[in-house]
Design a protein around this nucleic acid. Sequence first.
DNA 1: CGCGCGTCGATCGAAATTGTTCGCTGTGCC
DNA 2: GGCACAGCGAACAATTTCGATCGACGCGCG
Lengths: 252, 252
Amino acid sequence: MLKADRTAKILAHVTEAGSADVHALAELLGVSTATVRRDLQELHDQGLLHRTRGGAVTGTVNLELPLRHRHGKRQAEKRRIALAAERLVPEGAVVGLTGGTTTSELARVLAERGGVTIVTNAVNIAADLIVRPEIRLVVVGGIARSASYELVGPAAERMLSQYHLDVAFIGVDGLTAGEGCTTHDEMEAHTDQAFLRSASRCVVLADSSKVGLVTFAAICPLTDIHDLVTDDGLTGAQEKAVTGCGVRVLRA
Amino acid sequence: MLKADRTAKILAHVTEAGSADVHALAELLGVSTATVRRDLQELHDQGLLHRTRGGAVTGTVNLELPLRHRHGKRQAEKRRIALAAERLVPEGAVVGLTGGTTTSELARVLAERGGVTIVTNAVNIAADLIVRPEIRLVVVGGIARSASYELVGPAAERMLSQYHLDVAFIGVDGLTAGEGCTTHDEMEAHTDQAFLRSASRCVVLADSSKVGLVTFAAICPLTDIHDLVTDDGLTGAQEKAVTGCGVRVLRA
DNA sequence: CGCGCGTCGATCGAAATTGTTCGCTGTGCC
DNA sequence: GGCACAGCGAACAATTTCGATCGACGCGCG
């Protein structure tokens, strides 16, 4: 039996019955439980079903997006950056979050703390947070970009212009003293600008590998930024260049 | 038995009877009272029921279950309804989808077909579809409702008013000839209205258990609806009442 | 033939779940 | 108030399941 056939059968079985357990599937398909587990893992990663202990349930409402970049080795650093950034958020604040792995991590940290309002254009953050009634969540609409899980475009910017954010956290792909903050996509950059315009305080989240890089689309000059939260991989020269633009640097 | 199944059964039992005691649940499910207690604790933490000494009672009058507990035996019917509804969507159409399990199923069907633009206010649908670059996805922003995974409020309605939809699919909680379409939440109903206003064609998706029910908030009279897609569980009298309002009935 | 590649089954330690037992607390009854 | 008792939470042990790793097998290719 081909692997593709098997996974298709598993999926059919799960969606039909609403759930299935590992042993029954193994027997049904004539393979070992280890194989079933691997298949379920794979289907779960693709968001096609939801894995539970002992089996799986229908994935019709699976909110866990596989963030492809999430399992990178910088994960621990991003978490530390998020924990440092969280200290910039006062109780009851309205917080803006753009898309990105680091901002997603910050969203999780804030969700555990609770007591804030989060405004975001990132679908994965929205999916993460919507199950938490203890935080207020506002999602900025727009056209979906599958590459970054973000909602962008004029609608998003119009909607953002109607809100006031106490602090906006921006994830960037590149950051230099000369070119300022840059990202890979122009629409994204434009929507990020709308976040900055609506916010009293602008904070950039970027691990140290981004510093010194210039990517395609410009978001803003460094002088528009109040704080940069990063890890401790910055060289002295890099830090000096950034602080020279009036940006406060926070090391996680 | 999977844990997810067990908690779903507990919830079903409690909401059906209004209350339940630990021993009865333990016997019914074939597990120990300790396990039932732990499950009840968990459900209570999620605010899905109210724990009492000796058992549990329904948390609120108008209980609306989170979607993750609704994957039930009606799953197959929802899928059939979705497949029937898909035939109403011409190639290249702009399709509006509100929240709900049936509309989510339709979203999956449309995603596999591709070639359409989907406008939705449901976060779970957005999360499902954003990984599919072959369809255009527009998410309507707004305030997040964790009970239904929908984005609602004035921002959502303003944004919808700027779009034109070829066909809008609405998921409802109740449908009668007298009261029209109804749902559990007023904000949701209001946002649903915005979908209807923007659409050339209005289609309601509802399995037959919804027909004849009236819930809290009115969406629209039946005369505003062009089609109803449902399963084959409708009585003749029910169908006649619906068609009498000028609604075409499609059975999956 | 040898080799790399992907897949499968088996094994083992780690983690989660469950049932049991134990005090402790709340409730009803005298 | 005191008592009996059911229900509760916590701790513990037994079982199940998971994840990672290893070796085996089939297959294509040079």
